[in-house]
């Protein structure tokens, strides 16, 4: 008799996603779903999905979901959580959503210590609209709207959201991870779990920033993309725990 050692998490639906080959959203979805399963919170979790590549993530997460206007997921999540303080509410947001058009909403959700969990997928580019500059686009990185590379003197410098939010008292757990290798994935999953546990304990706001590849819009193969992330994104966005008020 065979023993099942790998299965789809209950918190993921049984459908093929629309994500491009080599895109790491799928990995992040799976890690979030595994954590929801392990914490046994699927039936009391409400997800808020953004505008961006993960706009259809409500079809992939097998939990109640609301789709929010661009950048507003933390506000929508605040509305849900205030109505259902006993439920688990998370937002799943990309870099443009969270660090450009929705900067105010995430900063204030964190400042209020809103008891929600935010999964922030940072791939340094706008994916859904076709590869334009993101707030996290690196200096000199070429995108559709920075054809000569991002010039910091006119287009600004990358926003390090984890570092920013860590300064706020309401933020209780902030970690930046990558999913570029099995070992990194394991670390990422542990971080996501801590972020959900932070909410379950009632401590306050928690966010995990996941560095991720976008081979399609970076113009690279999936393998080249993982290398590019390690060589270029890691120096700008160092991995690590930026806030862990749970331990205090």
């Amino acid at each position: 008799m065979s023993n099942k050692v790998f299965a789809r998490p209950r918190a993921l639906t049984d459908v093929a996603t629309h994500y491009c080959p080599g895109c790491q959203h799928g990995i992040v979805h799976r890690l979030v779903a595994e954590v929801i399963d392990e914490l046994d919170i699927q039936r009391k979790t409400i997800g808020v999905v953004p505008v961006g590549c993960s706009v259809l993530a409500d079809q992939y997460f097998n939990v109640d979901c609301q789709q929010a206007a661009h950048g507003r997921a933390p506000a929508v999540a605040t509305g849900i959580k205030r109505v259902h303080p006993d439920k688990v509410v998370f937002t799943y947001q990309g870099d443009g959503d969270i660090a450009a058009i929705g900067t105010a909403e995430i900063v204030h959700a964190a400042a209020r210590g809103e008891k929600i969990t935010t999964i922030f997928v940072n791939n340094a580019i706008y994916g859904m609209t076709g590869g334009q500059m993101a707030p996290t686009t690196l200096a000199n990185q070429i995108t559709a709207t920075t054809p000569k590379g991002r010039q910091e003197d006119s287009a600004g410098s990358p926003i390090q959201l984890s570092e920013m939010l860590a300064t706020l008292r309401g933020a209780k757990y902030i970690e930046r991870v990558s999913v570029n290798s099995p070992a990194q994935m394991a670390k990422a999953k542990a971080a996501i779990k801590k972020a959900f546990e932070t909410q379950l304990s009632g401590a306050g706001f928690a966010m995990v920033e996941v560095l991720a590849t976008c081979p399609t819009n970076w113009g690279k193969t999936p393998v080249e993309a993982t290398r590019w992330l390690n060589e270029n994104m890691l120096p700008q966005f160092p991995l690590g725990v930026y806030k862990n008020a749970n331990e205090v």
């Binding site: 609301q66 929010a68 206007a69 506000a75 509305g79 205030r82 105010a104 204030h108």
Partner: peptide, 26 residues
């Protein structure tokens, strides 16, 4: 009940969206 002063009108209406979607009179 619950009162929240939002950071902006934009945030406030989206909190309403969330709360209304969660079944509340808001």
């Amino acid at each position: 009940g619950m009162f929240l002063q939002a950071e902006s009108e934009v945030a406030a209406i989206n909190m309403v969206y969330g709360a209304a979607g969660a079944g509340a009179r808001v």
